[in-house]
């Protein structure tokens, strides 16, 4: 692994690629409620950016960019965001994850689930929750395996 840090091509190329990977990751997450994509895929793509960074520049650099404690915290936060949205619906008087209770659907909607105002927001929040969790858990797994192996 140490040798990888000396590879100029790798370093330069990853520096160029990483921002694009991240943007694509966010795109996939955001687009999840309408088309192919979503939190799981986007999260993994996001994580791959970090893991690539870790592979090429070493785990110390990665720890600087994404401190393990923050990553762990974000993992929990993601799940909370997901279940929080669900609980919000619950508190608003509906069933768990019944988004229509966040903002009631428009009058005369054919299918409340598709024409509702809050539907999209609810879904996006949930997707982000999932995405953040998947991404951070992947990073944690990577950290764990590399750390323990070298210890």
């Amino acid at each position: 692994m140490k040798n990888m840090e000396d590879q100029v091509v790798l370093r330069v190329f990853s520096k160029i690629m990483i921002p694009f990977i991240i943007i694509f990751g966010f795109y996939v997450i955001t687009h999840g409620e309408l088309g192919p994509g979503g939190g799981f895929q986007g999260g993994v793509i996001l994580a791959s950016a970090f893991i690539l960074y870790g592979l090429v520049f070493g785990k110390d650099q990665l720890a600087e960019a994404a401190p393990p404690r923050v990553v762990e915290g974000l993992a929990a936060f993601g799940v909370l965001l997901y279940s929080g949205v669900g609980a919000w619906c619950l508190l608003a008087g509906g069933n768990f994850l019944d988004y229509s209770y966040i903002i009631p659907p428009a009058e005369g909607a054919v299918i409340p689930h598709l024409d509702g105002g809050a539907e999209i927001w609810g879904m996006i929040l949930v997707e982000y929750g999932v995405g953040i969790t998947v991404c951070t858990v992947m990073i944690t797994v990577y950290n764990m395996i590399t750390e323990e192996a070298e210890a």
Binding site: V137, V141, M144, I145, E148, A149, A151
Partner: peptide, 13 residues
């Protein structure tokens, strides 16, 4: 796979 690998790393240790 992640859990299995984490355990395997510890087994190796």
């Amino acid at each position: 796979l992640a859990v299995a690998l984490a355990i395997i790393v510890n087994i190796k240790r």
